[in-house]
C-alpha cells in the first residue's frame, strides 16, 4: 500500500509522510503493539488487509488471533465485540462501508451505547467501530452513505470524523483509549487524497475538540471529514471576492465542541454549515441550535446550510450533484455576507 514511510527529523520529532489510510493503519499498529488486549475484527481485514488496505500487514505481524477475518456479518462483528469488550478485550471493529452498518444498528443502539447505563457502570464497552463513509469515489450504490446523525442521536456513543492524516491517527488512538465506545467515520474520498507529516509513535487528538483551520472575519464555515477540502476551496474563492472565511473542522461530531463554534460565530456573525448527509435531521440542525443557544444576538444573517439533499445517496452518475460543491458553498457564503 502507499505506506512506504519516509521518516524525517523535524524539530527533533520523528515524523513520517502518511495518507489518512496510512495513518489509520499506523494507529492500529501502535495500539496492537502497546496493548495485548487490542484486537481487530472485520470482513477481509486479515489476509487481504482490508478493502481499503487500512489493516495491511497487521495480521501478518500480530497473528490471526488478534487480527481476525470474521464471517460476513455486521451484527455478528459488533455483537461478538461486545462480548469481548465486557470480558477484558478492546476490539476495533471495522465495518467495510458505513452503508453496511445497518444490520449492526440494533446491536449498537440497544447494547453498545447503553450497556454502561443499564448496569450502572458495571459492564462497559471500550470498543472502537471504524467505518469508511461518504460519496464521491464512484462506488457502487449503498457504499456512499453519510449517516452520522443516526449515531450522534444515539446516547452513549461518541462519534469522530477526521479529515487529515494527523487527526486520523490521533483520534483513533484517543478512541481506543476512551473507556466508552467510539465510532470513527473515515472519509474514504480523502483516504489517499494527500499526505502529511505525522508523528512517529503514539499521540492523541482530544475527542470533543474542533480545530480552526483558517482564520477569517466575515463568515464561519463549519464542516468535517470529506467536506473540508470543499469548504477550503470555497474559502479561497471567497477571498478573491474580498470575503474572509473562518473555517472550523469539527473533528468530533459527538460531543460537539460548542466553544469553538460560539467563539467563531461571535466574531463573524455569520455561519455556513456544510455536510454531505441529508438536510433533514442532519447534524447541521444541531449546530444551528448550538449557535442559537450560545450566539443568537451576534448573528448578522440567517445561518446557511449546504448539504446533501433529502434523497437517498444516488447512483454515482449523479453523486456529484448530490454532494455539496465549492460553488454551492460559495453561493451560500455570499448570501450570508450580503444579507
Amino acid at each position: 500500500m502507499e505506506m512506504e514511510v519516509k521518516e524525517i527529523q523535524r524539530e527533533n520529532t520523528a515524523t513520517q509522510l502518511l495518507t489518512i489510510v496510512g495513518a489509520v493503519n499506523d494507529a492500529m499498529k501502535m495500539l496492537l503493539e502497546s496493548d495485548e488486549s487490542v484486537m481487530i475484527l472485520g470482513e477481509d481485514i486479515g489476509k487481504n488487509g482490508g478493502v481499503f488496505r487500512a489493516t495491511e500487514g497487521l495480521q501478518e505481524k500480530f497473528g490471526t488471533d488478534r487480527v481476525v477475518d470474521t464471517p460476513l456479518s455486521e451484527a455478528g462483528i459488533i455483537g461478538t465485540s461486545i462480548g469481548l469488550a465486557v470480558n477484558g478485550f478492546k476490539p476495533i471493529a471495522e465495518i467495510q462501508f458505513l452503508g453496511f452498518i445497518y444490520p449492526a444498528y440494533e446491536q449498537i443502539m440497544t447494547h453498545v451505547s447503553r450497556l454502561r447505563m443499564r448496569t450502572m457502570g458495571h459492564y462497559t464497552v471500550p470498543m472502537v467501530i471504524r467505518a469508511p463513509y461518504g460519496a464521491g469515489i464512484r462506488s457502487p450504490e449503498i457504499h456512499s452513505d453519510s449517516t452520522e446523525s443516526l449515531f450522534t442521536h444515539m446516547p452513549g456513543i461518541k462519534v469522530v470524523c477526521p479529515s487529515t492524516p494527523y487527526d486520523a491517527k490521533g483520534l483513533l488512538i484517543a478512541a481506543m483509549e476512551d473507556p466508552d465506545p467510539v465510532l470513527m467515520l473515515e472519509p474514504m474520498k480523502s483516504y489517499r487524497a494527500k499526505r502529511e507529516e505525522v508523528p512517529v509513535g503514539k499521540y492523541t487528538v482530544e475527542i470533543g475538540k474542533g480545530k480552526r483551520v483558517r482564520e477569517g472575519t466575515d463568515v464561519t464555515l463549519i464542516a468535517w471529514g470529506a467536506m473540508m477540502p470543499i469548504v477550503e476551496k470555497a474559502a479561497q474563492q471567497s477571498e478573491k471576492k474580498g470575503i474572509s472565511c473562518d473555517i472550523i473542522d469539527l473533528r468530533t461530531l459527538y460531543p460537539i465542541d460548542r466553544e469553538i463554534i460560539a467563539e467563531s460565530v461571535q466574531k463573524t456573525g455569520r455561519a455556513v454549515i456544510v455536510h454531505e448527509a441529508h438536510l433533514t435531521g442532519g447534524l447541521g440542525n444541531d449546530i444551528i441550535s448550538i449557535i442559537n443557544d450560545t450566539s443568537f444576538l451576534y448573528l448578522r444573517a440567517p445561518i446557511e446550510r449546504v448539504t446533501g439533499f433529502d434523497v437517498p445517496v444516488p447512483f454515482f452518475a449523479l453523486e456529484e450533484d448530490f454532494l455539496p460543491t465549492p460553488a454551492r458553498v460559495l453561493e451560500s457564503i455570499e448570501k450570508a455576507v450580503h444579507f
Binding site: 488471533d65 455478528g76 459488533i78 455483537g79 469481548l84 470480558n87 477484558g88
Partner: peptide, 18 residues
C-alpha cells in the same frame, strides 16, 4: 431485543478461550 445476546455470548466465550 430478541436474540441479540447470542453474539454477546459468542464474544465473551471467545474472550475466555483467548
Amino acid at each position: 431485543p430478541i436474540a441479540t445476546q447470542l453474539p454477546h455470548a459468542a464474544g465473551a466465550a471467545w474472550a475466555e478461550m483467548r
